[in-house]
């Protein structure tokens, strides 16, 4: 990896520097609710410190120099073993835009499904997300989440919503988890694959099952076809994005972040359930075949709101939300047959 970019002298927002990070967040973004509407005044405490908190846009990108090849370690089993919060975000719209990979170039991307911040397009910035409405059930979650459009027998299939889980990654001390910097861009999975991707950063399953597969399985109606996106939980502490959109972040292994990525972030796991069940599906993605599965996260969370959730739920190791399977087998007779 390269050394720090001297134009962005930032310290990681780890616990030791948390007080300052919080203070900066408070200074940078002063949000005042007046009659239910959010008015945001953006500024910075010093000129060059704003670059990696999204208040100056676009940010300087880190070179494509990432060295970590680790893949995601997932939480499995019953929810509630570690503190978490979960945002449920309705699908907002489809568009051939990608404000991370093709900023300012409308129509340049393959087709995406967008959730979270309303009206995201190629010109979207962190500030515009923060000023927008959200489809998420947590009002502070103005982030945008998107994935390539899924096609079954050539017809687009849209999910109604996604669940975004935020937890300390397995083995990570939750008190060591820092907030995600405003404007952070992350991509889980790799669209360039036409064969199975290594590891479990992305995968297919049914409903809330724990097992992942490379191939979309045949699922019952009670647990329809679902895909997971597990995002990086380690950050270089400096760059909101990188030229390859990966080198600024990495996955932890056994609770440890690799060298050069000193900041533990929440592990974001996105679950998208499609209205697909039964035999005979023939899936493809706007990005290619099913192995090209990937998804994007663009952090437009209200900084104070995100910090409040991370502090109250992750660092305190508290289950603030559950998205568990309180559903029933659709047809018991089928299961017994």
């Amino acid at each position: 990896m390269s050394g720090n970019d001297p134009t962005e002298p930032r310290e990681p927002t780890g616990p030791r520097s948390r007080g300052r990070a919080l203070l900066m967040a408070a200074v940078v973004v002063v949000a005042v609710i007046v009659g239910g509407s959010l008015v945001v005044a953006a500024g910075s405490d010093d000129g060059d410190a704003a670059a990696s908190d999204g208040s100056t846009w676009p940010p300087a990108l880190r070179a494509a120099d990432g060295t970590s090849t680790a893949t995601a370690t997932r939480h499995t089993g019953p929810q509630g073993r570690v503190g978490q919060f979960v945002a449920k975000c309705q699908r907002d719209h489809s568009a051939p835009d990608d404000p991370i990979v093709f900023p300012g170039l409308p129509g340049r991307s393959h087709m995406h499904e967008f959730y979270g911040a309303v009206g995201v397009d190629a010109d979207t910035t962190p500030a515009s997300m923060l000023a927008a409405d959200t489809t998420c059930d947590k009002p502070a979650d103005r982030a945008s989440y998107w994935h390539p459009t899924v096609y079954d027998h050539g017809e687009a299939v849209v999910a109604s919503e996604l669940d975004a889980y935020y937890r300390a990654a397995p083995g990570v001390d939750p008190t060591e988890v820092s907030t995600m910097p405003f404007g952070l861009a992350l991509i889980a999975g790799d669209m360039t694959y036409s064969t199975p991707q290594p590891g479990e950063s992305v995968g297919w399953t049914c409903g809330v099952r724990s097992t992942l597969s490379d191939e979309p399985p045949t699922c019952p109606e009670s647990a329809p076809l679902t895909f997971l996106l597990v995002f990086q939980d380690c950050w270089d502490g400096e760059h909101l994005d990188s030229v390859d959109h990966r080198s600024h972040a990495a996955y932890s292994t056994d609770g440890e972040c690799p060298d050069g990525y000193p900041v533990h972030l929440p592990q974001l796991t996105v679950s998208v359930t499609l209205p697909i069940f039964g035999e005979g599906h023939d899936l493809s993605l706007a990005s290619g075949n099913v192995y090209s599965l990937h998804g994007d996260f663009f952090n437009g969370w209200h900084p104070e709101g995100l910090e409040r959730e991370i502090d109250g739920c992750i660092r305190r190791d508290v289950v603030c939300d559950l998205r568990t399977n309180r559903s029933e087998p659709t047809n018991l007779e089928d299961l017994f047959s």
């Binding site: 949000a31 609710i33 008190t175 104070e304 409040r308 190791d317």
Partner: peptide
Amino acid sequence: RRTRSLLAGVALLLGASALAAC
């Protein structure tokens, strides 16, 4: 009953949540 490590004296900034309407 659970292993918990609390951050001592964490004070949220700005007092009231900006997300909660006044």
